[in-house]
């Protein structure tokens, strides 16, 4: 038998430890899915109902009453592609923020890599996104969508940005929420702002016009979530746009002659992913420091 070294207990390897304990992670995800819909009639069906109602409200108010459908051809696909992504993000923020507090009994008594809980919450949100994603896919195909490299690549990049960002904020909020429960409220407020801070309901050119292309526009576009939403729209909405135009320089344009997407969207997306990854590393560092005091604060 090999002699094992003397090690300090409870010094985890962070997210790497989570990867090492995939089996437990899977069981935790299953547990959360099971317990959330325990005793409900619709079960996982609720992940269809919520986005459907959300979609209907925006579609009728913004699309029909406020006549956004005229500015943006094929508005339903435009709206829904952004909405799928943003719902995933906002739901992840809420569930991860409460993931440590909600598992207090375990955190206080058994040492586990604590990152497991936010990670499981993120995965659960991912599972919840699947039905809506399926509907988006179906709607896009019905509207004439066909897979292409640029579509699939944009989708993957957008998803990577949002997942990384959600995990980063999730770790941060989960840890801080242990010490100040106010953060649960803060997350709710963030979630009111997020859907309006990205070009999901309106085209990005609205911001361009309002800011006259100044530094505020650059700030708006620097948000990785903005890039992700635009990438998702490029993946699903643009190929189904029957009024697609191209400018003389080859750039895609809307009927009014506006640019459909900002220039260098792919590069912006990659930069956004890089920023999200840096943020994740930072969040992991903060989480690792704060988690040492979880057991006594809960």
């Amino acid at each position: 038998m090999t002699v094992q070294p003397l090690l300090a207990p409870g010094r985890g390897g962070g997210l790497l430890d989570v990867a090492r304990r995939r089996y437990l992670l899977r069981l935790l995800v299953r547990r959360e899915l099971r317990s959330r819909y325990q005793g409900s009639l619709l079960g996982l069906g609720w992940s269809y109902v919520r986005p459907a109602v959300n979609f209907a409200v925006y579609y009728f108010v913004v699309g029909i009453f406020l006549k956004m459908s005229r500015t943006i051809p094929n508005f339903p696909v435009f709206l829904f592609s952004g909405m799928v992504l943003i719902s995933f993000f906002t739901e992840t923020l809420i569930t991860t923020a409460w993931s440590i507090v909600g598992n207090a009994a375990l955190v206080k008594k058994v040492y586990l890599p604590r990152e497991l809980f936010p990670a499981a919450s993120t995965l659960v949100s991912g599972v919840h996104m699947l039905p809506a994603f399926g509907v988006l896919m179906g709607g896009a195909v019905w509207a004439g969508w066909a897979p292409s490299w640029i579509a699939v690549g944009s989708m993957a990049l957008a998803f990577a940005i949002v997942a990384t960002l959600a995990m980063a904020f999730g770790l941060l909020f989960a840890a801080v929420n242990v010490f100040f429960r106010d953060f649960g409220q803060v997350v709710d407020i963030i979630n009111i702002v997020v859907p309006w801070s990205v070009p999901m309901i309106y085209p990005w050119t609205t911001v361009q016009d309002a800011t006259h292309g100044g530094w505020l526009l650059q700030l708006y576009l620097a948000n990785p979530l903005t890039s992700a939403v635009l990438l998702f729209e490029r993946a699903f909405w643009w190929p189904t746009n029957d009024q697609a135009l191209t400018l003389p320089n080859g750039a895609p344009a809307l009927p009014g002659g506006h640019l459909a997407f900002p220039y260098h969207l792919t590069v912006r997306g990659l930069a956004g992913l890089l920023a999200a990854m840096v943020l994740l590393a930072l969040a992991q560092w903060v989480f690792a420091r704060l988690q040492r005091r979880f057991a006594q604060e809960l």
Partner: peptide, 24 residues
């Protein structure tokens, strides 16, 4: 709890050899 790793000491060190499990 310090031995199991659930809590960390403020001063000093705790070290263990092998897998720790508990009926805590």
């Amino acid at each position: 709890k310090l031995i199991s790793g659930v809590m960390q000491p403020d001063r000093g060190s705790v070290r263990v050899r092998g897998r720790v499990a508990g009926l805590i």
